[in-house]
Design a protein around this nucleic acid. Structure first.
Lengths: 155, 155
DNA sequence: CGCGAGTGGATGACGTGTCAACAATGCTTG
DNA sequence: CAAGCATTGTTGACACGTCATCCACTCGCG
């Protein structure tokens, strides 16, 4: 169909494998942890964190999706489920008839205030503590580089 | 409930944020890409890759789960879905009445042989090309370090 | 031999993510 | 003011992952 593919050379493949496996295991463990510690899913945690970091725990729906870089449909489903459990509520927006606010309820605040310290502990234990401060800094900087690269790449 | 939490200091938080956002965006883009390029999900891809790298495209079920580090239930569901689409087949195991083999069908081979070069291209384009070879090597090495650290950590 | 423990794997329920389509409102222009 | 077009958000269908549970089979031991 097209030119012969350029496979990764061995060093590249090793680096890619390590990165992918690390990332998967880390994220997997963290989300199972936050779930069993607090009953919040990783998604719940992200949404509540974004809400409670904002004035009044109240954010316009689309702003929320941008803040966490989610698609609106994903957010809509998530907010729906969280509303059903009483963690957040939807409110109408006076100045735009289509619009909506999402608000963290007292339940929501309670839940994330309980979950956050545990979450930080696990991040520390599984990730931060694995590296020296310089290594951590390096990893952060390389991540930022990849991020920037992706942003100016189609797709 | 317990001692005051030790939050991440600013450098740590920045590094963590960059890493998490990068990883999420990268994995998200890659899996949407492989999906739209080839009709295979990321999960399909992983399973087919593991199968077709093995003698005869045939692997014992539990071996397969170990090779890709998945839980058996996840694999069972995945194999079920893939079997329904004709990408793999289940075969009984003569020497263990409980056992099962998973086999890549010709369809399965066709699918991954079509998908693989495109997948590699995207990995290259989004990730490898963002870094110099030394940086890539560093990132790989740091990932391996975190991985090793997690493995000797509870949970 | 028979019985209980462990192993290999499947299943159902449920929360999650994506895609495509839709509804409702706002905006802009003739 | 009316006709479109863009924006804001929801919905339904479906694939995916996890947890708990279950079943069939094997193996070891009395």
């Amino acid at each position: 169909m097209n030119a012969t593919p350029r496979w990764l050379d061995p060093e590249q493949k090793v680096a890619w494998d390590h990165f992918i496996r690390m990332q998967e295991k880390l994220v997997g463990r963290l989300s199972r942890r936050v779930q069993s510690d607090s009953g919040l899913s990783a998604a719940d945690y992200v949404v509540l964190a974004a809400l409670t970091e904002s004035e009044g725990g109240r954010v316009r729906f689309l702003d929320l999706t941008k803040r966490v870089e989610w698609e609106k449909s994903r957010m809509s489903h998530q907010v729906g489920r969280m509303a059903k459990r009483g963690l957040v509520a939807r409110e109408e927006c006076p100045e735009d008839g289509r619009g909506a606010f999402v608000v963290a309820t007292p339940e929501g605040y309670r839940a994330i205030e309980e979950a956050a310290p545990l979450h930080v502990e696990h991040v520390r234990r599984l990730f931060i503590d694995a590296l020296t401060p310089e290594e951590l800094d390096t990893l952060g900087r390389l991540s930022a580089r990849v991020l920037a690269h992706m942003e100016q790449q189609p797709d």
